[in-house]
Amino acid sequence: VLSAGYYDAYYRKAQQVRALIARDFKEAFTRCDVLLTPTAPTAAFAAGDKMDDPVTMYLNDMFTIPASMAGLPGISVPAGLDKDGLPLGLQIIGRAFDEETMLRAAAALEKAAAFKARPAGY
């Protein structure tokens, strides 16, 4: 895709999209210090599950992709268990080069939640 004939069609367009995503995050951070989002659209699945379903695996990562594309720090903290006892997570996204604020927010959230549950079998 990075060959000369495809540079404009793919790479340049991807860079433009990435810039738009970064701009949207920058605008959001004019109104807050960190963003809190789900880490994934579903509870975690067991190790080894879904290996034959790459689309499901990709879609389960979809909430973490925008921060990565924008070059922003993010961390997932435990938030609870679903009805089947599988872990749920919350993602905290910080400003570029402001990992300290993001980590302080994660620590405060973990302390306030006092989350101690463990998935079955662990």
Rank of each mutant, 00 (worst) to 15 (best):
A105R: 08
R31T: 09
I75Q: 04
I75L: 08
E100I: 12
I65R: 07
R23P: 03
R31N: 02
L59S: 01
A79H: 08
A108W: 07
G94T: 15
A106M: 13
A67I: 09
A22Q: 12
V1W: 05
R104K: 15
A43I: 08
G5S: 06
A117F: 00
L59D: 02
K13L: 11
K50C: 05
R23F: 05
P54A: 06
G80M: 04
D61E: 13
R95F: 06
Y58H: 03
I75N: 06
G89P: 11
T39F: 06
A114E: 11
L2A: 06
P54F: 03
D53K: 14
A19K: 14
L36C: 08
I21T: 13
Q91L: 04
Y11W: 06
A96P: 07
Y6N: 10
V34A: 02
D61L: 08
T56F: 14
M102E: 12
A44L: 01
L103D: 10
V17Y: 02
E100F: 13
L90R: 12
K83Q: 11
D53G: 11
Y6L: 06
V17W: 01
T39I: 06
S68V: 09
L72R: 09
A28S: 03
A14F: 02
I93S: 05
A114D: 13
I21L: 15
A106G: 15
D84Y: 05
I65M: 02
L36G: 07
A28W: 01
D61Q: 11
L72M: 03
L59C: 02
G48V: 04
K50N: 12
L109N: 02
Y58G: 01
L72G: 10
L88I: 03
L81N: 01
L35M: 08
S68G: 15
G5N: 14
P54D: 02
M102Q: 15
P119C: 02
M69R: 10
Y122K: 01
P78V: 08
E27H: 11
A28L: 01
T101K: 13
E110L: 05
A67R: 10
A96C: 12
Y122D: 00
A14K: 01
I92K: 08
L59Y: 03
G80H: 00
A67G: 13
D52V: 09
